[in-house]
Design a binder for these strands. Structure first.
Lengths: 197, 197
DNA sequence: CCTTACTTTGTAATTTGATTACAAAGTAGA
DNA sequence: TCTACTTTGTAATCAAATTACAAAGTAAGG
C-alpha cells in the first residue's frame, strides 16, 4: 500500500456506506470505484486489492479513535472522570463515522485477522483502558480488580458492542442513542449490577 | 436451504476451523468440501452457496447457546445466581465449539446482516439477559438499572467480546481462559468499578 | 420385484469479478 | 526540458463460484 494522499483518503470514505451495507466481500471493486469517485486503476495503483482499501479505512478510523480516547484520558481529572470521557470520546468518534464503524463491525473478523489492524485495535482500546484502570486504583476512584487486562477487555466489549449495535441499528438517531448508551454503559460499569446497600 | 440431515451437519463442523481461520470469503468451496468430506455438488444440493453454509453453522451454534443459556436461567435460584450460570453456560458452549465461535466473531458482520441470524443472536443472548435483569430487580438480588435493554446489550458485549477474544487468541488454553474470564466478567458486572465503601 | 421420488455425487460448462498488463497523458521539481 | 512519479483508460488474464446435467444409489409403497 502506497502512501495515501489526504484527498484520496477523503474520497475513499465515500465508499464506506457501501462497504458497510454489503460487506467488503460483496462490494464489487467497480462499485467502490463509483461510490468513491476513484477510478479502478487508481485504486489498484495505491492498494493491493479490495481488502487493503478496507484495511486502510479501518486503520484510519482506529487511529482517530485512539487519538481521541488518548486525549480524553490525558486530560487532568480523576480516573473515574477520565473513564467517562474516554467512553464519550469513543462513542463520539463512532458517531462521526457511522459508516466506517459499521464496516468495522461488519468485518471485525477480517480486522482481527490482519495483524496491523489487530495491533491498532489493541492500542486504540485495550491499552489505554487497562492503564486507566490501574491509575484509578492509585488515585482511589476505581476499585482494584483482580485482572485489569480482562477487565479492560470486558470494558472494551461493553462499549464497542453497545456502541456499534446502535450505529448499525439506526444511523439516523445515532446522536441521542450515543448519549443514552454512554449513560447506560458508564452506569453499568461503575456501579455494577449488585445492589449497594 | 434444504432440511439438513444430522449426519451432514456433523460433517460440516469439520470445516469450521478452516472457515474460522480464513474467513468465509477466503475459504474456497473446494476447501470446505475437502475439510468436511462433503462433495461440492452435495453442498450445492443443500445450500444456495458458501454463505448459507456459514449461516447454517452459526445458526446451529446460536441455537445451542440459546438452549444452554435458557436452561441455566430457568434453574431455581436467585437472579444473581442465574446470571452467573448463564455466563458460565455461554462460555461453556463457546468452549465446546471454539472453531464455530471463531467463525462467528470473524463473520459477525455477515451474521448481523442476515436477518435470521440477527434474530437468533437476539433470542440467544439479548432477550434472556434482559429478562433476567428484570427478574433480579424483583427478587432484590440485582440493582434496578434505568435501561435494562441497553444494560443487557452491554452485558452481552462484555461476555461475547471477552469470551470470543479468548477463543481466538489461544484455542489450546481455552478451558482455563474461560474459567478466568467468567470470574472477571461476573466480578466486573456485579461489583462495578467504583469502590464500595 | 418394480416404480417413483428423492438423494448423492461427478464432470463439464458458464459467469462473475478481481487482478494484472500496458500505454497514454498529466504534473511537478531539478 | 528531462525525469520520475501519478493518474487513468482499456484490454487481457485468472480464479472461483455457481449452474447444468446426468448417472447412480436408496428407500418406501404397492
Amino acid at each position: 500500500m502506497r502512501n495515501v494522499p489526504a484527498k484520496l483518503a477523503a474520497k475513499l470514505y465515500g465508499a464506506a456506506d457501501l462497504i458497510a451495507d454489503k460487506g467488503i466481500a460483496d462490494a464489487k471493486i467497480e462499485e467502490i470505484a463509483d461510490a468513491s469517485g476513484v477510478p479502478i486503476a487508481t485504486l489498484y495503483y495505491y492498494f493491493r486489492g479490495k481488502e487493503e482499501i478496507l484495511a486502510f479505512l479501518l486503520g484510519d478510523l482506529l487511529e482517530s479513535i485512539a487519538g481521541e480516547v488518548g486525549a480524553a484520558m490525558s486530560k487532568p481529572g480523576t480516573a473515574i472522570d477520565r473513564l467517562k470521557w474516554a467512553v464519550e470520546a469513543q462513542m463520539r468518534v463512532m458517531l462521526e463515522n457511522p459508516a466506517a464503524c459499521r464496516a468495522l463491525v461488519g468485518d471485525l473478523g477480517r480486522a482481527t485477522r490482519l495483524p496491523e489492524l489487530a495491533t491498532a485495535l489493541e492500542s486504540a482500546f485495550h491499552q489505554p483502558l487497562e492503564q486507566l484502570l490501574r491509575e484509578g486504583v492509585e488515585d482511589g476512584t476505581l476499585r482494584a480488580v483482580q485482572d485489569p487486562g480482562k477487565a479492560a477487555l470486558s470494558v472494551f466489549g461493553t462499549i464497542t458492542i453497545a456502541g456499534l449495535t446502535g450505529t448499525v441499528a439506526q444511523p439516523e438517531h445515532a446522536a441521542s442513542y450515543a448519549q443514552e448508551t454512554v449513560q447506560a454503559v458508564c452506569d453499568l460499569l461503575l456501579e455494577g449490577l449488585r445492589p449497594r446497600e
